[in-house]
Amino acid sequence: MAPFRFHTADLDALESGALYWAAERLLCVSDLHLGKSERIARRGGALLPPYDTRETLDRLSAEIARHDPATVICLGDSFDDLDALDRLAEAARRHLLTLMAGRRWIWIEGNHDPGPTDLGGEHLFEASINSLTFRHVAEPGTPPGEVSGHYHPKASLTLRGRRVSSACFLSDATRLILPAFGAYTGGLKVSDPAVSNLMMPEACVRLTRAPQHAIPLRLVA
């Protein structure tokens, strides 16, 4: 699949919801929310089996195996909260350490995980790589080339009488917002003012189910 041009970079929007930048051998994933089921259970909510962490890590492993990136950026909300990291099962922790071994690994700080971890790697509020800036939440008025997550954008599109709905990448000339990579993460419709107000009118989405197509924001709901 052909990469798309964002700011000055050629990027691949992957069906998994990850972003790959071949020129930099950089893989970026957002909003892993590791330990989510555990946190919900801890707070007295629904008892979800604690396998979401494993599922998310398996999918991340698959992307890392496919692209062998030199750099991995986790774009914030990697852990559902800082306690979730502490309580992360030993197997999951080892799994993460294996993935991290031998490459540059950047943890961007998110609203769910605003503090350093004991897993190693770099811990940053934001990271600038070449011409792009990676941060968790999009900032209004930022210069072009911002890559962020946080909103878990999703969109639906009406096609010949049926409605197709999926998580999506959302971009305009200034910014690119990634879908959530984690399992059990819901989404916010791109028509929600919280997201749409950030974007310029000519923004477009790429559904993770068919990321080869850039669809103008005005055509989706």
Partner: peptide, 8 residues
């Protein structure tokens, strides 16, 4: 899906 999006 591919064809339909292309058509739209």
């Amino acid at each position: 899906l591919d064809e339909d999006i292309a058509a739209v």
